[in-house]
Design a protein around this nucleic acid. Structure first.
Lengths: 154, 154
DNA sequence: TTACTTTGACTTTCTTTGACCTTCAAATAT
DNA sequence: ATATTTGAAGGTCAAAGAAAGTCAAAGTAA
């Protein structure tokens, strides 16, 4: 039924590579990976830019030219990271962006699946009877309150 | 004989999908479904907005763009306990009453300490910049959304 | 009338693709 | 030795494509 997004497949592939290797990083070759998924090489960049960002606890290091590579490091999420995110959230945030951060916490095992679901219910757009602007403002408050609680409880 | 409303047909179709799949959620594609019923895609939104609302026990999650989707989650009706609380919460609730319910859930081991802390952070009176009346109203919405998620996830 | 439905034009968000650019190291030429 | 060329990477950006969301106007039913 639901056609999976190529970007998600690539994201999972990279995460699995990392897990299987039992390491906190992987090294890939852009063209090779693009070849595996039969897509444009720049698609790989898109995945890296949208899924393996610092905000999600990943750091990318690469080198061009012959023998070039892309290394993806999974960083450990500290309270410092959470505080950075709280700053980034600012005064308003969309539902998808909020989910983006929640998924990062889940990815790094900072929260459980159930906790993630709970948090997502809170930031769900449909439960708030306000204007889009007000919803984004309120969501930011709620998300930050939850993030602070997580940092405290960690 | 009354001509069945399109919206009702779509509503039933979605509910049947869910039952047949034996799952507490379904994933649909808006355009695809609109195509099945030969209607405007926005008709699907109308059905979701009027029939699959939070107070009817549904939570919607969606994503735009290529490979987009709409997921419809149904609250489990099996958890009578939680549903009773949801009923009791009503349309507005004070912080202390909300904490009282959260503690009760913790007491019965329905949620963990961490989950309780997360929930309390959300119902905290101080984080909301509204009148007392609005805060109580909003808190009720948030608490119910979280309770439904817990019932679903149990 | 009044509330609910249906429709369609327009908007926003997210993804995919491709053409062109930059960097680097090894091979080659001077 | 030093400079140049070449090919092998990865990077950038904008356009095209693929969904879903919004909103208001028009239509229907109670």
């Amino acid at each position: 039924m639901a056609m999976a997004r190529l970007s998600d497949l690539i994201e999972n592939f990279i995460k699995e590579l990392m897990e299987e290797a039992g390491k906190h990083y992987v090294e890939i070759q852009r063209n090779e990976l693009a070849n595996v998924f039969n897509c444009a090489p720049s698609q790989i960049n898109y995945v890296l830019e949208t899924r393996f960002t610092i905000d999600r606890g990943y750091i990318i290091e690469s080198k061009r030219g012959g023998g070039g590579y892309i290394k993806i490091y999974k960083t450990s999420i500290s309270n410092n990271w959470i505080n950075k995110i709280i700053e980034n959230v600012g005064d308003n945030i969309s539902e998808s962006k909020a989910r983006y951060y929640i998924d990062a916490l889940l990815d790094h095992n900072i929260i459980t699946t159930r906790e993630a679901a709970l948090m997502k219910a809170v930031v769900n757009d449909k439960i708030l009877p306000f204007s889009q602007e007000d919803k984004n403002m309120l969501r930011a408050l709620l998300l930050k309150a939850m993030l602070m609680e997580i940092a405290r409880n960690k």
